[in-house]
């Protein structure tokens, strides 16, 4: 009970700035929106993508948001660690786990709101909506996001108080993960070494799973692979974050 109340407390703390300024949601979506409108039509014209372009591309945009959103969770945590507010909260009886879970929940809600918005905008462009598949896809996205959020918290804690490490790692890791997952263009058309690198990238599996789910195919092999990648990421992220929190900040 206390844990749930504490989680709600932290969630409402983190969510209040978004609630008071909903436009900020749209601003943080600038990049995916640009990709949707300025890059998506290029795919539609070409024949690079297997199957219908929007069906292929929209899940990729969602993954793009899923990579940047939870990483922002770490960034906000880092700000609170550099300032004194995290320390202040740690002296209160609030649950330590709730401090992280509440933050992660806020990123989910933001991520879900943005995902729904992107999907809504993509339907008139030609996205074919398979509701059960999309809902399952969003769930998978959230599970993957939990893991990324946890990893980003650990990175933030390790980087405090300077923060350089956090900015450095996120810059260096984000784009390769994105480009090597076939979010923008199919990796199948690339050279062999690039396909090997993509096969080692967990994000690739999640993207493939999302694409299968958005097409309404639940029993595809990529769905199993993607779910496994998301669950493993979530378990790893949560485990590392909890372990790091137990050592004291």
């Amino acid at each position: 009970m206390t844990f749930l109340r504490d989680t709600a407390t932290i969630f409402s703390r983190e969510f209040a700035p978004v609630w008071r300024d909903p436009l900020s949601l749209v601003f943080t979506m600038a990049q995916p929106l640009l990709f949707l409108y300025l890059f998506g039509p290029l795919l539609e014209q070409g024949t690079q993508t297997p199957g219908p372009a929007w069906q292929w591309f929209v899940p990729g945009i969602l993954i793009m948001m899923c990579l940047s959103g939870p990483l922002m969770a770490g960034y906000f945590l880092l700000l609170d660690l550099i300032g004194g507010s995290m320390e202040r909260l740690l002296v209160t009886p609030v649950s330590r786990t709730a401090l992280l879970v509440g933050r992660t929940l806020k990123e989910f809600v933001v991520l879900l709101a943005q995902a729904v918005l992107i999907i809504g905008l993509a339907v008139p462009l030609g996205l074919d909506l398979h509701v059960p598949g999309v809902l399952t896809g969003l769930t998978l996205l959230v599970v993957f996001g939990i893991g990324l959020g946890g990893l980003s918290f650990v990175l933030a804690i390790v980087s405090a108080p300077g923060g350089e490490l956090f900015y450095g790692v996120t810059q260096v890791v984000m784009f390769p993960l994105l480009l090597l997952s076939g979010v923008l263009l199919p990796v199948e058309n690339g050279p062999g070494w690039l396909q090997t690198a993509a096969a080692l990238n967990p994000v690739t599996y999640v993207v493939e799973a999302e694409r299968a789910l958005f097409a309404g195919r639940f029993l595809d092999a990529p769905v199993v692979g993607g779910a496994a990648a998301a669950v493993v990421t979530a378990l790893l992220g949560l485990h590392l974050a909890r372990r790091r929190m137990a050592r004291g900040l």
Binding site: G84, S85, E87
Partner: peptide
């Protein structure tokens, strides 16, 4: 049962 006022500001910058 305790209160603590740290060296750094306790309020987060993004919040009222």
């Amino acid at each position: 049962r305790i209160g603590y006022i740290g060296q750094k500001g306790g309020a987060g910058e993004a919040f009222r």
